[in-house]
């Protein structure tokens, strides 16, 4: 709607300009370029928004045999930062609450593998990295 009105206005203005000089054509091209840019920006924002929302999951995707603790820690922390609902994450088959092998699901911290008996929280829905 917002763009339709300027479109109509542009049309009328273009007609007037066509009757007068060729400089009007240059102006309309600039206007079109600006509109195209704005459209591209607007069309990209919902995609990014959907992507951000899609990242909301508690369970970690498959990370087989990631021995590099640094990378593991970084990826794990990044994924956990976007975690929200553990229940919806459970609807995917190959996800687990913590990607650190050997660590308790209730203590997903670096070095937790050294002692599976230690836990940092009592409710899995409130466990954060």
């Amino acid at each position: 709607m917002i763009f339709q009105q300027p479109s109509k206005t542009e049309k009328k203005e273009e007609n007037n300009l066509n009757k007068q000089t060729s400089m009007a054509n240059t102006y309309s091209w600039l206007f079109l370029a600006i509109c195209a840019t704005l459209l591209l920006l607007l069309s990209s924002s919902p995609t990014a928004d959907a992507g951000a929302l899609g990242m909301e999951m508690t369970w970690i995707p498959s990370m087989p045999m990631e021995e590099e603790f640094q990378l593991d820690s970084e990826i794990s922390r990044r994924i956990l930062a976007t975690t929200k609902y553990i229940s919806y994450g459970a609807l995917q088959r190959n996800t687990v609450p913590c990607s650190r092998r050997g660590a308790s699901y209730y203590n997903c911290q670096p070095g937790a593998q050294a002692n599976p008996y230690s836990r940092g929280c009592s409710a899995i829905t409130r466990c954060r990295s």
Binding site: Q4, E10, F31, L53, E56, M57, Q92
Partner: peptide, 18 residues
């Protein structure tokens, strides 16, 4: 895999090209 919580994004009506 599997469904995430259903989220209805804001509808963007693309205006017809001038």
């Amino acid at each position: 895999e599997g469904p995430l919580p259903p989220i209805v994004g804001l509808p963007y009506a693309s205006p017809p090209p001038p």
